[in-house]
Design a protein around this nucleic acid. Structure first.
Length: 670
RNA sequence: GCCUCCUUAGCUCAGUCGGUAGAGCGUUUCACUCGUAAUGAAAAGGUCGCCAGUUCGAUUCUGGCAGGGGGCUCCA
């Protein structure tokens, strides 16, 4: 054997001469926060030799990649603990996810919350025993031999090379290249205490996990994400570089919980879901109704200004309409079952003498709008024809997916269908996208990106040429907006591609908002026509668009975005007047009357509570303006403001106070 | 739809190892109350989600159904 050669590496941008066989650990051994290295763009374990000429960069535990490695390694530690606790458990997959990780297990009995607590303790033991993660390449035969008794791992080995078919997270286990097994080696004894088929990379040792992890919940999940497969038990967890990071994360979750629209909806008396009505069917209380009305009124105003016309259509229809539209073919399962009516039977024989009809609750408004278009001959001069409706639709959502206001069975779409010529299509789409973004901004959202959903070959109608043209047009319009554009292959509805606008809320979560869909197919199915300038009959193009998506869902989003503290123009109660003592009740009522005369939603709190209690009540109700009047104010013909942040503005002349409030509402500021 | 957990006063939750229940907030009443997040007292309010079964007796145990939470799958 010859002596090791010197090789050149580019370490963090600088050329370095090192001995052959140098590892990441050799380069960064003194920096504990370096957990893996990036070698020519790929993440590698610290103990792997680095090939000559490679570009090497340190990956620290608090970087995005470093966190993923930390979480993946924590998942392994958890799996090791699970196999100690449940000897019968078989390993599924265990990838990192946003903010954490999960691992799936086939176990005889589901995990209990007590199990999770015990597992956390067992994990700490493993972490403290400072096991090393050691990578080992194996052949397929070896892998199968070592994973005997782990049926799911064996299945994954068999799938290697087709990892895109293997299902969610599976490529983290087997990857694309060689098969590898990671041994967990006890620091003292050198014994292999646990192993798993995994492509890595991993932390050098378990000590780096420290105590900044938590197991958060357990739930069932289908093996390889397929409903037809067996359900495994999944445990979710989270892991962070330090305990403080973990606490900050838990605080973020707590903040999201405080903002939960279902909780705030009850606290602020906005809406409820009476059991008597059934799952996913909300009722809006007066305060929620006020918010909703403010949302809708402003939307109507803007639609009028943008050249939309208003239509109204019924909630149920005979089945034929949805046969023509194709909905019964594609979405029957998502529709409420039909009502069979008007059937007549012979009273004696019981035989049907007149067949009945099936009526369906409407799941979408578009077919009805098409009938309005078709109700008389149309001229090119009428186009673009923009039909708008707050249309209530009913969808038979599966029982497990109904969720607060965001996923309901009865909802109202701010739905419009635009009929235009092919030549107008692109301009109309551009105008529509700008209109959508502009309007969303007025409701306080300003951080957007776009998603372009393209054809699902399994679920579509119409020719390829038509789809291509529609998709190209949408892509051009989306790109012209300058917003980030994310592809969503196969995400389109059966009748055409769509752009959806995604918005980030005040705490950084993304919500799918508006959709703009291009449709050449329904005009075909409904044989829609207009007469062109040359006298010929032409088929219009149809654009489906909804801004809020559903009014209910949008309200849920706004509640969470504002944490229940609506901007003044949306707030159910905009002003509460609190007299300092009973003597000033009449003075306060006069001020409130002046505000009401200006269309402000103002109330006076004349109850028997003492003054500070009334302040507290208004505060808890998140009222934007609290007006206070006592002796000093009354003598000066003035009133004092108390704002939601606790700040004050005292002794404002009444007329000025009124106009301040009126202006703040008109400005739609937040 | 599947897995799992849950359902006690309007709300948030105690409690009964099987003998029909309690707190805080809220509500009502009375008294008090002149300056920025809780004045005091009293009262009302529950077939312990619904339906069966076991039992002398079920809010408590068992089963079914409904509603809800967390996931999975789905989301025109």
């Amino acid at each position: 054997m010859s002596a090791p050669q010197n090789i050149t590496l580019i370490v963090d941008g600088e050329e370095n001469q090192v001995t052959e066989g140098t590892t990441g650990a050799d380069l960064y051994g003194t920096r504990r926060e370096v957990v893996v290295v990036r070698v020519d763009g790929e993440l590698k374990d610290l103990d792997q030799p680095i090939p000559a000429g490679a570009k090497v960069e340190a990956v620290t535990i608090d970087s995005a990649d470093g966190l993923n490695v930390l979480r993946h390694s924590t998942a392994h530690v958890m799996a090791q603990a699970v196999q100690q606790l449940r000897k019968d458990s078989k390993l599924g997959i265990g990838p990192y996810i946003t903010d954490g990780f999960y691992f799936d297990f086939d176990v005889d009995e589901p995990f209990t919350p007590e199990d999770l607590k015990q597992l956390e303790k067992m994990m700490l033991k493993i972490v403290n025993s400072n096991q090393r993660f050691v990578r080992r390449a194996v052949s397929e035969t070896e892998a199968l031999a070592e994973m005997a008794g782990e049926p799911y791992k064996e299945e994954l080995i068999g799938l290697k090379g087709h990892s895109d078919e293997a299902g969610e997270g599976a490529n983290i286990e087997v990857g694309a290249g060689e098969l590898t097994i990671y041994d967990n080696v006890d620091a003292k004894s050198g014994e292999v205490v646990w192993k798993d088929l995994c492509r890595g990379p991993h932390l050098p040792n378990t000590k780096l996990i420290s105590n900044a992890y938590a197991l958060t919940r357990s739930a069932a999940a289908y093996w390889r994400g397929n409903e037809k497969n067996k359900q495994l038990q999944r445990i979710y967890g989270t892991a962070w570089p330090t305990k403080d990071d973990l606490k900050a994360y838990q605080e973020r979750l707590a903040e999201a919980e405080r903002r939960d629209h279902r909780r705030l909806g009850a606290e602020l008396d906005l809406f409820s879901f009476p059991d008597e009505l059934g799952s996913g069917l909300p009722v809006f209380h007066p305060k929620g109704g006020t918010v909703r009305k403010a949302m809708e009124d402003y939307s109507r105003q803007r639609h009028t200004e943008a050249g939309y016309e208003f239509v109204y259509t019924p909630h149920i229809t005979k089945s034929n309409l949805y046969e023509v539209s194709g909905h019964l073919d594609w979405y029957r399962d998502g529709m409420f079952p039909p009502m069979h009516v008007d059937e007549t039977r012979d009273p004696e024989t019981g035989e049907v003498v007149k067949p009945g009809q099936d009526y369906y609750l409407k799941p979408m408004n578009c077919p009805m709008h098409n009938l309005i278009f078709r109700s008389r001959g149309r001229s090119y001069r009428e186009l673009p024809l923009r039909l708008f409706e707050f249309g209530s639709v009913y969808r038979y959502e599966k029982s497990g997916v109904v969720h607060g206001l965001t996923r309901v069975r009865g909802m109202t779409q701010d739905d419009a269908h635009i009929y235009c010529t092919r030549e107008q299509m692109k301009d109309e789409l551009t105008t529509t996208l700008n209109f959508v973004l502009d309007l969303l901004k007025d409701y306080g959202l300003d951080d957007f990106f776009l998603e372009l959903s393209t054809k699902d070959p399994e679920k579509s109608v119409g020719s390829d040429e038509v789809w291509d043209e529609a998709t190209r047009t949408l892509a051009e319009v989306a790109e012209a907006s300058g917003l980030e554009l994310v592809p969503d292959p196969g995400g389109a509805a059966f009748y055409g591609p769509k752009i959806s606008v995604q918005a980030r809320d005040a705490i950084g979560r993304t919500w799918q908002m508006s959709t703009i869909q291009l449709d050449f197919n329904l005009p075909e199915r409904f044989e829609l026509e207009y007469q062109a300038a040359d006298g010929s009959r032409q088929r219009p193009v149809m654009i489906h668009r909804a801004l809020f998506g559903s009014v209910e869902r949008f309200m849920g989003l706004l509640i969470e975005h504002y944490a229940g503290a609506f901007p003044a123009w949306l707030a159910p109660v905009q002003v509460v007047g609190i007299p300092v003592a009973e003597t000033f009740n009449d003075y306060m009522l006069e001020i409130v009357a002046k505000l009401r005369a200006q269309g402000i939603r103002a109330e006076a709190d004349l109850g028997s509570d003492r003054f500070p209690k009334k302040i507290r009540t208004a505060s808890k109700d998140k009222v934007p303006f609290v007006l206070i009047a006592g002796g000093e104010d009354a003598e000066a013909g003035a009133v004092s403001f108390r704002f939601r942040d606790g700040s004050q503005d005292n002794g404002i002349p009444v007329d000025e106070a009124v106009s301040r409030i009126v202006q703040a509402v008109a400005r739609r500021g937040n």
